[in-house]
Amino acid sequence: MLKSTSTISWLVFAGAALLLSLLLQDLYLRSVLNLIAISALLAVSLRFVMLMGELNFAIAAFVGIGAYAAGYMSTAMEVPFWLAILIAGIGTGIVSAAFGAVTLRAKGPYFLLIGFAFTEAIRVAYSKVPALGGTSGMVGIFPPIAMDPWMPFFVMATVIVLLLIFFILERSDFGRVLFAIREKEEVARSVGINTFIYKIATIAFACFAAGIAGGLHAFVNNVISPGDFSYLMAAFALAYVKVGGEDHFFGPILGAIFLVSLSAYSLGFGGDEHFIYGGAIVLVVLLLPKGAVGAIANMRPKKAHVKGGGHAALEQ
């Protein structure tokens, strides 16, 4: 399924990332690396839903659901931390499938805005539940002490496995159906594809990953509060996708690496996160509409299209 060149590049990048997660000793740098990994996962999840032409702005709500579920299972029920994260992911996927079954009847702007409203409604809901810590949130979500030095490795490995699944799904027939839905859903339906099921499956898997990301976030930060999961989280994920370039799988990952590093670096000088992310999005949208990856691809001499015209037709 994977071509040999992409297998090699995956092995090189994954190996380098995992090695980095083992070698870094500085506590601050380790936290930045964790944040980059989780952000990259969110960005790729957001882009995966964009493949079928929808913007899943509810992703912030699902990260929150995953984080709260994992945190609650770990602190109140003493579920082992890896199992808590896994169950949180699966639970989030199920909730998102129900959410999708209702909201995917609407499209485009309606779907996007409902996600936005859902995020804010869920955030109010957390603050109303005393078992979840109300407005001040949940504290003391720790992985086992023996696990502590291995946390960056665990986070990175989990993220890489999920990224690989996203990659394989996109290159498979499943990914082709998503492209077809984006271009002309009626045509996909006319050849007997149940597009509604595909759309729900897409949301469910993307939000499964978001739930896992939330669980990782909870154990990495040890503290979560409703304010962490506002619509700004989805806006930041969108920034990674857009700055990196949405046409290529690795675009969002590059965007996450670049923007998270930039904001971590500039916070040292009292820089403002909103300002940097906002400025980056505006500049990129106006100047490099295809993102960093698109700009790099444009600089290379154009190769003749050998791999069939299908892909060219998809690029607008």
């Binding site: 996007l112 969108l238 857009k242 403002d272 300002f275 992310y277």
Partner: peptide
């Protein structure tokens, strides 16, 4: 929409 989100963050700052 992406442009408007960028402007929102920028203006927030």
């Amino acid at each position: 929409f992406i442009l408007s989100i960028g402007l929102v963050l920028l203006l927030d700052g």
